[in-house]
C-alpha cells in the first residue's frame, strides 16, 4: 500500500521539553486514519510538523514522498487543513475568507461553493467577528471541502459543531474516501473515529502506543459478555481470561480476553443458557485501557 503520510521516529523538543518522542506512523492512500489522544499528548504538534509550521528536531516526515519541511510549498498544493481552533480575521466576512483560501491554494472554485454553504448552513456575509466557534470551524471546513486536495488533515474538526452538522461532516468524510482521497482525522470523539476510520493511531505523552486497524486493536482487548441462565454459573470466575464478573441474580456480566472466548463458550455450554450476548470492545475501551494504568494489560 502506498503511504501518503509517513512519519519516522519524529522527535520534537521545545527547549528541554520533549513534546514528541520518536513518533512513528503512516497514513495509506485512500484510507481514513484516526489520530487519537488526550489534550497535550502531541496531536497538534504532530500535525503542525506535517504542515511545515514546526520543524522536527529529529526524524523524518514525508507527505506524498516529499519532505514536509523542505518541500512544503509543493505539498500544500495538494492538501487541505482544518485546525481545531479556527482563528479568522474579525473584519473579513466568511465568504471573503473562503475565497481568499481558495485563491491562495490556486484557482477560485465556485462550482460547489454555494452548495457547501447551504449544506453547512453558513451565512457568508457575516463578519468573522460575529461567528461562533462552530461557524468559524464551518468556514475552514467549507474551504477545505471546496479544494480538490489529495490529503485532508482535520484536527478535531467537529469540536464546535452540533450533532446534525457532525453527521453532515461524517458523510463528507465518507464521500472523500469513496473518491479515493486520504484523510488524517485527529479527534476526541471516539465514536466518530470508530465510525469513520479504517486505521487508528493512539498517542500518549508524545509517543504512539498503538496503531493498526480497529479489528487488530480490538483483538488486543476484551469483549463484553452477558449471560442469562436458569441456574448459577459456579466456577465462571475461574475460567481463564474472564474478568470483572458482575452477578445480578442469574444474569452475569463480564469481560473476556478475545483469545480466550473459546474457553468461555465451552464452559457456558454446560449450563442451560437463556441469553448470550457478546459485544466487541468500543474504541473507548481501547482508549481507556491505555490510559487507566497498565496493571491489567492483556498479554
Amino acid at each position: 500500500m502506498e503511504k501518503v503520510v509517513d512519519i519516522k521516529r519524529v522527535t520534537k523538543k521545545f527547549g528541554d521539553f520533549k513534546a514528541l518522542d520518536e513518533v512513528d506512523f503512516s497514513v495509506r492512500k485512500g484510507e481514513v486514519f484516526g489520530f487519537i489522544g488526550p489534550n497535550g499528548a502531541g496531536k497538534s504538534t504532530t500535525i503542525r510538523i506535517l504542515l511545515g509550521i514546526l520543524k522536527a528536531t529529529e526524524g523524518q516526515a514525508t507527505i506524498f514522498g516529499k519532505d514536509v519541511w523542505n518541500d512544503s510549498m509543493e505539498i500544500h498544493r495538494q492538501i487541505a487543513y482544518v485546525p481545531g481552533d479556527v482563528n479568522l480575521w474579525p473584519n473579513l466576512t466568511g465568504g471573503e475568507v473562503i475565497d481568499l483560501f481558495a485563491k491562495l491554494r490556486g484557482g477560485r472554485q465556485t462550482k460547489r461553493r454555494e452548495e457547501l454553504l447551504e449544506r453547512y448552513k453558513l451565512d457568508p456575509t457575516k463578519k468573522c467577528r460575529t461567528y461562533s466557534k462552530g461557524n468559524r470551524q464551518k468556514v475552514a471546513l467549507v474551504s477545505a471541502l471546496l479544494s480538490e486536495a489529495d490529503l485532508y488533515i482535520f484536527d478535531e474538526p467537529t469540536s464546535g459543531l452540533d450533532p446534525l452538522m457532525e453527521q453532515t461532516f461524517q458523510e463528507d468524510v465518507r464521500n472523500l474516501r469513496q473518491e479515493g482521497k486520504s484523510v488524517l482525522l485527529s479527534s476526541h470523539i471516539l465514536s466518530e473515529v470508530e465510525k469513520l476510520c479504517d486505521r487508528v493511531g493512539i498517542i500518549r505523552d508524545g509517543t504512539i502506543i498503538e496503531q493498526g486497524s480497529l479489528e487488530e486493536l480490538r483483538h488486543l482487548t476484551r469483549h463484553h459478555v452477558l449471560l442469562e441462565t436458569t441456574s448459577s454459573l459456579d466456577g465462571l470466575r475461574d475460567v481463564e481470561g474472564v474478568h470483572d464478573v458482575n452477578q445480578d441474580g442469574n444474569t452475569y456480566r463480564f469481560q473476556v480476553n478475545a483469545e480466550q472466548m473459546d474457553q468461555v463458550i465451552k464452559f457456558a455450554s454446560q449450563y442451560p443458557i437463556q441469553k448470550f450476548e457478546s459485544a466487541p470492545p468500543t474504541l473507548e475501551d481501547l482508549f481507556m485501557r491505555h490510559y487507566e494504568g497498565t496493571d491489567e494489560v492483556v498479554e
Partner: peptide, 21 residues
Amino acid sequence: KPGKARASNNLLSPFGLAFRL
C-alpha cells in the same frame, strides 16, 4: 448591514490580505 459574500480580487493574495487588514 451584511458584508460581502464574495471577496474582491484585491484581497486575494498575501499582500492583499496584509493591506486589507
